Simulated scan of single mutants.
Amino acid sequence: MSPQSPSSQLSGTQLVHGDHGPGSEVAPSISVTTTFRAVPHRDLEGFGTLNSDQHIYSRYSQNVTSRVEQILSKINQGHAITYASGLAAAFSALVHFKPKRIAISGGYMGCHGTISTYMKGKSDDTPIISLEDEFQEGDLCWLESPLNPTGESRDIKYYADKIHAVGGKLLVDSTFGPPPLQYPFKWGADCIFHSGTKYFGGHSDLLCGIIIVRTEAERMQLWHDRVYMGNMMGSLESWLLLRSLRTMHLRIPRQSASGTEIAQWLSRAIVPQGQEYDGIPGGVVTKVWHSSLQETDANGFNPAAQMEGGFNACFSILLSKKEYAEKLPHSLEYFVSATSLGGVESLAEQRIQADPKENPLLVRLSVGVEEVADLKDDLRRALVEISRGN
């Protein structure tokens, strides 16, 4: 399957029927077998192919995982492979690209930790450089957009042009921008990475990592590595992911629209102490980060063009006092005080509780599928409560 032209529409038809073949179950069974009965004249060249019904051993392939990867390939307009977690996928990408240097700035702490772990197994040095440094041949540009935890977008095409000019590769961590919000191949990415735990899973009940590459030959290289690293998804997680994909075209646009509305609403509440906006007391919220709030930059980058299907549903706010940031997640009713993002339930966390490098005033919000009016009421009430010292 060759990549299709990206569209801001995520096909519900593909999500529901994209893995069905002759005789396949409509709702797949949970497969728990590790090994399969041998058949005569098995095609050994068929190992790892998505349409293979010649499964041998679940470390190589099994039915539900193959069905999941068929759908992921179609909706991401490339060739997808799954892993046991987002960080398992990140590690596999490093093994695959074997970078001479890695250009990365900010973003998810877990990927920085995975890079450090990867380097422990290398005899030679792999320098870490900034995204703003000059690139060289053999570099891997690791670009996260939108950025965790703020939800700000970075210009994928700019970094694609910069790294390709020296013969390097661009990996885009698009966890905050799943289909149909963003299609990084359209802007020059060589590889797309997702923590499928988040929006693809969507229900806070599975761990998953996803890598999408441009060609089937690249996917087969990744599959071969996965066989011998043993970091494939479990059978139950594959089944849960396949279930979740069926409603992705309903969940993601809803979360995107609600998250954008709430981010813009909170940004209007940045008013001086003694004033208020829509019942939110002034002097409490001092900054809101979100792709929809970014202005076109000096290079002409407009996040709205890159995020053609809608803006991210996870973003951050800055409060004026540390005690406000500590109390807010625990003062909310509909926003659950928990880490992670992308689930149907809204979440809130003082990000420093998960990442010690973050600003203690920063609270990250992940917007779910609840009624947006209820989420606003929840935030308004909690912000009033913490401002009064309750």
Rank of each mutant, 00 (worst) to 15 (best):
G110T: 02
W187Q: 01
S235T: 14
G168C: 03
L206K: 07
D205Y: 07
Q306H: 07
Y57M: 02
N148Y: 14
Q62H: 14
D190K: 00
F200W: 14
T215C: 09
P184R: 08
T286C: 07
V367E: 02
S153N: 09
H330N: 11
L171P: 08
R226F: 00
H112I: 05
I71H: 04
C314Q: 09
E216I: 06
D125Q: 14
G106A: 02
V271P: 05
L147P: 01
L206S: 06
G78I: 12
G113D: 13
H112Q: 12
E349T: 13
I317D: 00
Q14K: 10
N51C: 04
L318F: 09
G274M: 02
M119C: 15
G279E: 04
S5C: 00
T114K: 12
R251H: 10
F47K: 09
A89P: 06
K157N: 05
S85R: 14
T339N: 14
Q264Y: 03
S130A: 15
H224V: 00
K357G: 04
E349H: 13
L15K: 04
T117E: 15
V95N: 13
V284W: 01
E358D: 12
K376V: 02
I163G: 06
T82R: 13
F200I: 06
D125Y: 13
R243M: 13
S130K: 15
P146S: 11
C191Y: 10
T260S: 11
G21Q: 04
S5A: 08
T34R: 11
Y159F: 15
E45K: 11
F311E: 09
P329A: 08
D124P: 02
E385H: 10
Y83R: 13
H164N: 12
K376H: 07
T247I: 12
H164D: 05
V227C: 14
N148Q: 10
S58D: 15
S61P: 01
I280K: 09
S258K: 05
A38W: 09
R42V: 05
Y228V: 08
P40C: 03
E323T: 11
S204M: 05
I30S: 02
A382E: 07
A38H: 12
R254Q: 10
K321V: 00
F301Y: 13
L242I: 09
H20S: 03
F176H: 14
K120N: 15
L207M: 14
G177W: 04
L362P: 05
W289I: 00
Y57P: 00
S29E: 07
T339W: 14
I352D: 00
S195D: 13
G23P: 01
G177C: 08
G121D: 14
Y277I: 01
E261K: 13
E218G: 08
L362A: 11
Q306A: 10
I163T: 06
R251P: 03
